[in-house]
Design a protein around this nucleic acid. Structure first.
Lengths: 126, 126
DNA sequence: ATTGATAATGATAATCATTATCGTTAACGT
DNA sequence: ACGTTAACGATAATGATTATCATTATCAAT
């Protein structure tokens, strides 16, 4: 069977994401990785982001505005500013209700969306 | 200032969404509305979905696979099947923890993502 | 009812993020 | 080293969404 080979491009993508906390887009990761490996291709960044996500090493965060990536995979939540579109981390204390909005946060929260993932009943049976 | 005028195309979009619970894509809404107004344009469906969402009359649900629409705006949550990509409603009892997964559900839940929306601290000040 | 202003439409071109293709390069087991 | 093939860089293709624009429909004022 095929297995993963080492790739400095993939290492650079993963390292960049592990160093930052601003939830960059694929394009923004590309710009950063280019500073370390100037010859890197945008397609390679997309390829490795997808691969790393499928391996569970990074998270893809889908917002209404853009897809973003997060190198920190511990359980935590996110906030999107409707104005500047930035994505911030929100750490909720364990067991907090989704109806109890975080207090230690200078912004204003006007809504939230909770999405569960898994297998539906019919796909479960297959 | 400008104000909204009546439009049977917009009414048809809104009515279609209010009748269904399957969280259709824009294309799927278009197919349905076309059965009522055969001359309707896909662009008109997109325009009205955006307009209705900005008016708070429908919800846009962004999933990793596609954007979907929901005509039912009361607070509730969603489940995306990783296999068939369907989006289902999940009603959580009030105050339930995000760590307590719903029981009345035939599928398997493997993860979840919680996104808050609003204004960040710096945009708040503007 | 008619008119005038303009919101809304239908058709389609343009945009843009992402993916596919393909010839070349590089990782690594033998 | 060598051969196999995963991974790459470059770029074309794709597909969902948005922009454009000439035409039509809404509706307040006459």
């Amino acid at each position: 069977m095929s297995s993963l080979r080492n790739s400095k491009q993939r290492d650079a993508v993963l390292q960049n994401l592990s160093e930052r906390y601003d939830h960059p887009t694929a394009e923004e990761v590309y710009i950063s990785v280019k500073k370390v490996i100037p010859s890197v291709s945008l397609a390679t960044v997309y390829r490795n982001l997808k691969l790393l996500e499928s391996e569970g090493m990074i998270l893809k965060i889908t917002t209404p505005d853009s897809d973003r990536f997060d190198g920190h995979t511990h359980e935590h939540y996110h906030f999107t500013c409707n104005s500047c579109k930035r994505v911030l981390d929100l750490e909720l204390s364990d067991g907090i209700s989704v109806n109890t909005l975080p207090k230690n946060f200078g912004g204003t929260i006007t809504g939230h969306e909770l999405m569960f993932y898994g297998l539906c009943e019919s796909c479960n049976k297959i």
